[in-house]
């Protein structure tokens, strides 16, 4: 128990540290004291620095923080519901659905509307978000409808993967028929980024996530029972169908919204639950849920920092960083687990 509290404090401190580093570091380095002055408005700092902090770094850091937390929660929920360590937000085809929606908007706009959407600025941004949410929700509706009919979780997972394949295929066809500029815009969206959202819309995103995350905490007891498998959970009074609906919906909504604002971010949702299970050596969601939330936020901040390192600016998409960090984490946790089992 003591070790767990210690880990919690450590993760929490790492969030504060990386939050600050995210504000300080970048192509233009701003000293910590100036950041302090800018945030608390306690002194005169240059307008350029103020702009960098308020218009770029602060929103981006905040986005990374809540997106990381949200994706990790979503991943934990998926892994528990499907009792599959490989389940994650993208495995059910939710991300693919969002991608498909965005592909329709970005890739077809050039052909039909005559202008490429990327040139439309704010309107383009909003319509991309709407398309992503629409795509994600469509897939989500299909998955939920199926989840109420089929029994096995494996079947559902396979259907999710199949939906992923179908979207990839359709996107491939769309790409073929659209102009280079649109394809490039779509590819860039697909790389994911915490800085895509601009201005006041960041705060809408943050507020949505701040309401969704506590809601997902309400499912802790349900998730703990689901660990036991369907038979035992039912025998302990859990309504399996309804619980599955709640958990999948919750997880899907979070993924859909994060994907709409940041593009498909891979690996965070998969890696963080594994990492937390390893660190906290428990399957109890009363510990795992807060752990995953904090760890996800912290890891997203680290990834964002690496992606923005001087010299990498713009060259290193966030998805490459999450994959490069996430994959070794999953592998090392799995190896570490082996060792623990032997001891």
């Amino acid at each position: 128990m003591k070790r767990q509290t210690f880990s919690f404090i450590l993760i929490f401190l790492s969030i504060i540290l990386f939050f600050i580093l995210n504000l300080v570091l970048g192509t233009i380095s701003i000293p910590f004291s100036s950041i302090w002055n800018i945030i608390w408005e306690t002194g005169e700092e240059s307008d350029i620095w103020q702009n960098i902090i308020w218009k770029t770094r602060f929103p981006q850091t905040l986005t990374a923080l809540v997106a990381g937390a949200g994706l990790s929660i979503s991943g934990l929920q998926m892994q528990t519901v499907f009792r599959n360590p490989l389940a994650g937000p993208s495995e059910l085809g939710i991300s693919s659905g969002a991608s498909l929606g965005v592909a329709f908007i970005i890739l077809l706009s050039g052909n039909i509307g005559g202008t490429t959407l990327s040139k439309l600025g704010f309107f383009g941004e909003v319509s991309v978000s709407i398309a992503a949410i629409a795509g994600a929700i469509t897939v989500m509706a299909i998955i939920i409808a199926i989840s109420q009919r089929v029994k096995g979780n494996v079947v559902l997972l396979i259907i999710g993967v199949m939906i992923g394949y179908i979207s990839t295929a359709v996107i491939g066809v769309l790409k073929f028929f659209s102009n280079d500029e649109d394809v490039k815009a779509y590819v860039i969206w697909g790389l994911g980024s915490f800085s895509k959202v601009s201005g006041g819309r960041v705060y809408i995103f943050v507020w949505i996530m701040i309401t969704l995350i506590p809601i997902s905490f309400l499912l802790i007891k349900t998730l703990n029972l689901m660990l036991l498998g369907e038979g035992y959970a039912r025998n302990l009074g859990l309504n399996i169908k309804r619980s599955r609906l709640y958990v999948i919906t919750c997880s899907c909504v979070i993924t859909a919204i994060v994907t709409a604002y940041c593009g498909p971010i891979v690996f965070l949702g998969l890696a963080v639950p594994h990492l937390c299970r390893g660190i906290f050596t428990t399957s109890d969601h009363r510990v795992l849920m807060p752990a995953v939330t904090l760890m996800g936020a912290s890891l997203a901040l680290i990834c964002n920092l690496i992606a923005r390192m001087p010299g990498f600016e713009g060259a290193l998409p966030i998805n490459s960083v999450t994959a490069l960090i996430g994959a070794p984490i999953v592998i090392s946790v799995l190896f570490g687990k082996r060792k623990n089992e032997i001891n």
């Binding site: 007891k221 660990l227 038979g231 302990l236």
Partner: peptide, 30 residues
């Protein structure tokens, strides 16, 4: 019930598992 389905839970102690048997009586957070 005691079923034939095998549990695939890692990282849960025997006591925690038996504690889950109390679920019908425990509160919101279990």
């Amino acid at each position: 019930v005691v079923l034939t389905e095998k549990l695939e839970i890692k990282n849960m102690t025997v006591k925690e598992l038996i504690g889950l048997g109390r679920s019908p009586y425990t509160g919101f957070w279990g």
